[in-house]
Every structure is written in structure tokens, then in C-alpha cells.
Amino acid sequence: MKKSGLQDMKRENLRLIMNVILEKETVSRIELSEIIGLSPSTVSSLTSELIEKGWIVENGVTTPTGGRKRIELSVNSSKGYIAILEIGWRRAVLHFLDLALEKKHSVLISDYYITGNELLEQVTHCLREEAENFCNGKLAGIGLLFQEDMSPSDFNVMYSTSLSSASISFCEAVKTQFKVPVMEEYSQVYSFRQIMKKEESTNSAHIEIGKKVFVSITSNGTFLDMTEGKKADMTPFIENTGKKMSADKLSEGIVNLLQMICMMFPIENVYLSGRLDEGDRLAERINGQLKKSDLLKHAVEVKAIKPVINHMETDLGKRVLKKVICEM
């Protein structure tokens, strides 16, 4: 049986208020009261507490409403900052966002592949020694954005005491190091989510072709858990992807892969992205081969797409901030 005390209820209400302000960007107390369904006096008392703690500010914008002035509230951008670490094979970049989710600065951590331990060391140095030069307040949360064909296990950290050692995920190591909320996201999943918003496809597969070949599957609009988080490494099904392959071999490999996937999942649309020279022609060729296949019991359409990567850091930053609010 859950025991919800007054403290818990108050904490929950504070979170609700923070979430609404985050979504709306600016909002008045009376609007907050209407949206959340709490009395104006309760909202007023809770917002005063949040102002006192520095989470929100009265941003000075006043709107006259029938003779009375309405003061807008917004997240206090200088209360702290969020760090988004973008991790790819060739580079790692640390972006700094204030709590209003405005990007303040980016630092190139490395322009070549480095191990999890090296990455952790350099990120720690940057956050502890340099962050204060371009951000106010304390580190509030961290987002890890794994790019393209990266896998979080490529950056596992060796936690060693010299006599004993264990391999832990980069996320666990970052949590241990900074003791702030940490979120992981994959750019592939992110861009796929953007495509799904546009295409309204609920049962689909996304094949990312790069040094490795990863597949993500959505069923009824939900990402399925797979062997690498929200994606699975299917490289062995498409031979020799490290080298340049002929279009014939590549399409043949993808067709084989799709036949297998479609036997297990009710896929309607397939999206191809990654290192594709002529994505549309490849999709056309695959569609042609799939039509001839007698293994498929339903129609599947293959499209080549370019990942939507705009505002990825901001989007992840927002989700990190929500997690920070959740744990405040």
C-alpha cells in the first residue's frame, strides 16, 4: 500500500507546475491554475516556492486583463545547465544548454574514436573545469546522444580498483561521476520518430546502413526493445558492409533481411537511411525484388530517407530536463 504524505503531494504538484511551464515556455499563475486544476492560492504558494528555489522566474512580461496585470512565469534559464554529449565514431561533441533549452556553447571533445574511459575523463574535465566559462549555475542533467551506427556498448567503461575491475555502461559511469539524471538516446531512433510523425506509419522498420547495419522496428507506433536497446545489429545478414558493395549485392542483402523481418513482424513501411549514394534507386530496386518474392504475405513499401537531425540536442535536452524535474 502506497503512503502518500503531504510532502509527496506537494512534490508532485511542484513537478506538475514545472512541467507545464516547460511545455508552455511562459504561463501565468491563473493559467497554471486552470491547466492543473489546483486552486489559485495553492498555485501561488507553490510558484512562490519555485521562485524562491530559483527554478522559475517572473519574466517581467505583463498582460493586462480587465484592469489587472498578469505576470508570466518561465523557467529560470540561469538556474543550471544541461549537457548533451553527441557521440559518433569520428567525433564526440559536448553541447551546453541552459534550462530554457537554448544552446549556449559546444565543445569538441574528440575528433577520432576514443574509448569509454578516455571519453569519460575528457567529459569530466570539460564539465568540471570549463563549463563555468559559458554556463551559469550547476549541472542539472546529462543527455547521451549516440549517433548513426554507434552502440552504447562501444563506450563501456572499465571500472577498476587495480585488484578488481568490472565493465559498466557509459551511462552508469556518467551517473556515478556526476550524480545527476542521465538519459540515453540514439539519433537513429530520434530521426525515425520524426519520420513516423510525418508518415503516420505504425508498423515499420528502419534500416540504417553504415559501418554496421542496424534495424529498428515499430509495432503499433511503439519501438520494440531489441538487442542493442531500440535497435539490433543485423550486419551479418548483409555481407561486407565495411567495404563498398555493389548496388546489386546490397539490395540482395536487404531483401533477404526484409523477408526475414516481415515473416516475424507485420511491417508495412521500410525506411532506408545512412551511407547511401543513390538511396531512391536502391529503394526502387528493392521494391522490385520484393514484389517478385513469394515469401511476403503482404505488401511492403521501401523508401529512402534522410534523417531529420535538426534540434536533436534541444529535444533530448527537454527530455533530460523533464527527468530532472521528475527527480527534484
Binding site: 502506497k2 503512503k3 504524505g5 510532502q7 509527496d8 512534490r11 508532485e12 513537478r15 523533464k322 527527468k323 521528475c326 527527480e327
Partner: peptide, 9 residues
């Protein structure tokens, strides 16, 4: 005071 056991997302 009670332990902060929140139903986090």
C-alpha cells in the same frame, strides 16, 4: 519525513 519514492516516468 517520508522517503522520496516517486512514480518516475
Amino acid at each position: 519525513f517520508s522517503a522520496p519514492v516517486s512514480d518516475q516516468i
